[in-house]
């Protein structure tokens, strides 16, 4: 592993972290920073949020998010998959829109109730 300097994003304090070759983290004010530093260097992940097309609803789009973090390197691939689909109202908050998004083991879920509007 290469040495890295990072800003911890877990809380607003924004500690400046240093992660060395053996994954030792310094500069963190609390243990959450150490865990973040390790994760960010070995396998950085992010939650993805976007929208998908929907028919017969008040608005043409339904907001969605991944139900957990996915590898950072797969964000654009996930966006491509999200762009392909289209929903039909009614949709409920929490409905699974895509199972196992880009093989991450995480689902894409709807984040707004979209009742039918004629």
């Amino acid at each position: 592993m290469e040495e890295r300097d990072l800003i911890c994003i877990v809380c607003p304090r924004g500690c400046h972290l240093h992660v060395d070759k053996d994954l030792n983290v310094t500069g963190n004010f609390c243990p959450r920073g150490a865990a973040y530093g390790k994760q960010e260097v070995t396998n950085p992940t992010r939650v993805i949020t976007s929208t998908v097309r929907i028919e017969n609803a008040l608005l043409p789009l339904c907001p969605v998010r991944s139900n957990g973090a996915i590898p950072k390197g797969k964000l654009f691939e996930a966006m491509k998959e999200i762009d392909k689909i289209s929903l039909k109202a009614p949709v409920k908050i929490g409905d699974v829109v895509i199972h196992d998004l880009v093989g991450s083991g995480v689902d894409l879920i709807a984040t707004r109730d979209m009742p039918v509007v004629k």
């Binding site: 939650v47 949020t49 907001p63 998010r65 908050i93 984040t111 707004r112 109730d113």
Partner: peptide, 10 residues
């Protein structure tokens, strides 16, 4: 929980 804006509003 970490929610999106529309979920929080809901």
């Amino acid at each position: 929980e970490e929610l999106s804006g529309p979920e929080f509003a809901d």
